[in-house]
Design a protein around this nucleic acid. Sequence first.
RNA 1: GCCGGAGUGGUGAAACUGGCAGACGCGCUGGACUCAAAAUCCAGUGGGGCUUAAACCCCGUGCGGGUUCGAAUCCCGCCUCCGGCACCA
Length: 867
Amino acid sequence: MKDYDHKKIEERWQNYWEESGLFKVDLSRDENKYYCLMMFPYPSAALHVGHGRNYIIGDAVARYKIMRGLNVLAPMGWDSFGLPAENAAIRKNIHPEEYTRANIATMKRQLRQWGVGYDWDREISSCSPEYYRWTQWIFLVLYRAGLAYRKRADANWCPQCATTLANEQVLDSDCERCRSTVEKKSLEQWFFRITDYAQRLLDDLDTLDRWPERVKTMQRNWIGRSEGAEVVFRTEGGDEIPIFTTRPDTLWGATFMVLAPEHPLLDRIIAADRRAELAEYRSSLASVSEVDRAAADREKTGIFTGARAVNPVNGEKIPIYAADYVMMSYGSGAIMAVPAHDQRDFDFARKFGIPIRVVIAPPGWKGKELEEAWEDIEEGTMTASGDFDGTPVREAKKVVTDWLEAGGLGRFAVNYRLRDWLISRQRYWGAPIPIVYCSRCGTVPVPEEDLPVLLPREVDFRPTGQSPLALSEEFKHTACPGCGGPAVRETDTMDTFVDSSWYFLRYLTPDDSGKAFDRELCDRWLPVDQYIGGIEHATMHLIYARFVVKALRDQGLLGFDEPFRNLFTQGMICREAYYLPGKGYCPPEEVEIRDGKAVHLSTGREVETRMEKMSKSKLNVVSPDRLLEWLGADTVRLYTLFIGPPEKDAEWNDQAVEGASRFLKRLWKKTRELAPAAEGEEVEPDPAGMNEAEKRLFRKTHQTIKKVTADLEGDFHFNTAIAAAMELMNEIHSFAGSAGEGKASLPLFALKSLVRLLAPFVPHICEELWRELGGKESVFQGGWPRFSAEALRSETVTMVVQINGRLRGKVTVERDSGEEEVRSAALGDSSVQRWLDGLEVVKAVIVPNRLINLVARPDRKGPGTES
RNA sequence: GCCGGAGUGGUGAAACUGGCAGACGCGCUGGACUCAAAAUCCAGUGGGGCUUAAACCCCGUGCGGGUUCGAAUCCCGCCUCCGGCACCA
């Protein structure tokens, strides 16, 4: 055995695992099943070490579960439709398909080199017709269930990408991808009725007890449930204006109404002489960006319509305004405005000179004018509200709602922030929506047997604002499946989140050309036992997948309604990026650190150092290829797992990677020293007759097994598991150094345990060392080491002695010593005696085997007088 | 504004259920090996005080209070940072 040659070793065992089928799974054997799923990636041009975290974590989990004897399903595939391929293809003038295929090949190579194992027989790719045929099928299932519908709607339109975006792809009114300001565009588009499932999506979060609280909170915010009442106001002309309010108890304080500027009713009720003003107001809003319009501190604008509405609770006539602080897309697009109890209405009323009438009296209120809206729902009592005067605000909401319902004026109502899922995309690289429009039969779904609706290959897919497929005459024109007459196809493609909302079902039967998924197998293998991915999918992918599974279940196609039992979201890997103000990011090679300041070499200007998520655009990526060549996959894996708690963001440190390499070299060297004494069969050493040093190493080994096991079974804190393994390594090292010649079986036992404990993290070197230590089969077949509670016990323990809570000494006593023994041992300690001089012990608090705290007060006899 | 999460050495971070703060790394300092360097190995490394040295002592987990024999951990009030939602009626 030579020096640690990571390249040779890694190559050897990667081949071995592939040939021996370590990750191949037999689905018919479903006892002890473990479905370990990593979010399938978009095949981007090249991975960096930050991407690696997800795969390495998943691989460590999968390998650990294999060692525990579970039947592990660990598949991988490609979320291969989507904008980047199309954009890159436009830029580089190659077909998205070629581009995607090349990227997949690169990524597969990199994953292999990382030592990340999957059952590649189950590989799927969402852009292949064999896959998207079934994405289209799912669309048809939803369509038949009434969950897919088409309507004209203002879509979020990105002028740069020339496409519509889902709400989730709009960040602060900017396009998630290119950061252009998103505009509104009115188009006929397809939606999934996810709002029908809002309540169930919300309620069932409570059943996901192994999901991060953070993700569930984000989903709750996203669904945005609020309770209140729907109340119908009427204009003087008799038009109904239903409104939603969370504060029905303030109805008597409504002094005006506001309609969203887009509200269709405005055109009917606007006074003739104000029509021009409305048109002007509307067009002035077109130039206001979404960001500005949404800014809460923006000064309120609006116009009076000249119309009035009747308040149903008191018959009062109140003016109707149009103002853009009311959104057409939430509730009914109209509100009753209660300036005294809503700050937005308050601001508007002040500006337009509308009366502000207090109907919830703050405690001690003497009828004075308010400085700001009183929004408190804990304190205050109803006033100026007819029979309800004096009702405490805490009860008011319910009391008033009941009264409204009894009188037929309104009803209890729930509103959600969640909107229906817009799935139409005016892009080429996606699954065509399987719908045909016939002048005679109308909207006709493509029959199942005609799927897939193939994406034509030769299409001009440059963004024009039109769907590229609309430019393909051959694609567009077809025969109506109903009447056989001439018809045109839907030319939009589906949001790629549709592709990823069911892929985890397909891994079970990736080649089945007869159905999308096998219900029987799905019911046995799902929900996924462990899902691992990025936090960025907290609201979009993870809500869509939940919705689709629930919908499929309701159609009798699945027997469960939550796809992912456990969810783990890992943090991002960040690294220093250098930002040259006014110029953008610059590569680290052009930066030098002088006197603690980062200076740009060619211009001499100081650059800002920012810790940013590793990304190509920030020029702060670390390529795995160089590192794998230099230090090897195991080093990269060990460092990636050791860098910090995996759910948190972490900072990549180039120097610290070498520390991981150093540890592996020490492990290698130590094995090389001890291996010659190995005799194949492992014999657990017998602690009887061991000396103190031996007992310590024996105990340490068992403690380490316990710690690593707990970390892997618990919250995946690989960092502390690896730290524990390092401690054991240090212990073996100092034991071997001090014990000299002697029985080798104990350090060998410790070392063998260590190698097995590290195998999920650094599989190549462990597989090699395992064989070196006499292992006949793969370390992954050999089981997981066990610890015994018996072995963890030591006969003596060191206990901390505190006096009044401060550390004053330590004593060694027999394990499980009684209070009296511990107390007298503590009082016998010289340092303790010195501190107790002049004090009287009034109480002793004992934590068995850990600590004794002596509570002492000044001796009444005074210091020094006792002796 | 609302809802989450976090704040610990030079640095990444540990610390179970309230019980020795800083495990394990990185960096740094000193030493060994070397003609020298790298690599490797050994020792040290929160701040301060005292001492020839050791022993020993004080302070210390964002800030201010509190509960407790005992608080990084629990409670109250702040500050800062990160994330989500947001004129959502």
